[in-house]
């Protein structure tokens, strides 16, 4: 079967000052699939995630070598429009960062930034995004309420709706469920399963079961290197590397 590669990294090295956070990462991220990144804290998986939408550039003294491609265009090339890149590659953070405004305004934030002013158009985007994030039925009667009055799980889905509103192609998720209770986590995982039919998803998680449940591919990171990358069931059932086996069976990390 022909694989469609949405994003790929080639010989990617990342430095923070003198510290090298990533070593020669080569990864193919397949379209409409969920790719999970696992590994102990500080192994570089979040840094890798942030290098996919150039968010690592916010950190003072960060440097990169090697290349990252989105649909065959190199995103670190000079002259690449970072705004366009980040519109296409959306991101969900660990702590649901709802903005201090109403539910409606949270979702409308991105479209407004990108110049959509007409109320009817905004209404439609907000409604569609909230529906896609499985949140519409819960909030449709209180769109003007402050967003921080929602539960943690609802906030995380609101953040996803906010990302969907700018119509991305890839969604990066940095431990999206680590602050959620088990029920909200389950709902988030259901949502991920639905979203992958339309988007390409890369998710960083500390939760091995979660990686096994939601992802099609898994990459195991250790000390800034990607030790192993494979189909998820391959990686969990027949890990090639004994460090991978140690980690997924909980013997260290």
């Amino acid at each position: 079967m022909e694989k469609a590669i949405k994003m790929k990294s080639r010989e990617l090295n990342l430095f923070y000052g003198n510290f090298q956070a990533l070593y020669n990462i080569n990864m193919d991220i397949e379209e409409n699939r969920v790719t999970a990144l696992i590994g102990p804290s500080g192994c570089g998986k979040s840094s890798f995630l942030r290098s996919l939408n150039r968010l690592n550039e916010l950190i003072e003294g960060s440097r990169i070598s090697g290349e990252v491609f989105l649909d065959d265009s190199a995103i670190y090339e000079k002259g690449i429009n970072v705004v366009e890149l980040r519109k296409k590659v959306g991101m969900v953070f660990q702590k649901p960062a709802v903005f201090p405004m109403s539910i409606y305004e949270n979702v409308a934030y991105g479209p407004r930034i990108h110049g959509i002013k007409k109320r009817s158009e905004l209404d439609e985007i907000v409604c569609r995004s909230l529906q896609s994030a499985n949140l519409w039925d819960e909030v449709k009667d209180r769109l003007v309420a402050p967003a921080n009055q929602m539960s943690g799980g609802q906030q995380q889905r609101l953040v996803i709706a906010r990302v969907l509103a700018v119509q991305p192609e890839v969604i990066l998720m940095d431990e999206p469920a680590s602050a959620l209770d088990p029920i909200s986590t389950a709902r988030l995982e259901e949502l991920i399963a639905i979203l992958k039919t339309r988007y390409t998803i890369v998710i960083v998680t500390h939760n091995m079961q979660q990686a096994a449940r939601v992802s099609d591919y898994t990459g195991f990171f250790l000390h800034g290197c990607m030790l192993e990358f494979n189909r998820t069931e391959e990686l969990f059932l027949n890990p090639r590397h004994n460090k991978t086996e140690d980690y997924i069976t909980g013997r260290f990390g």
Partner: peptide, 10 residues
Amino acid sequence: YKESSLALGA
């Protein structure tokens, strides 16, 4: 907040 906003393309 700032990171989320930048990640939305602002």
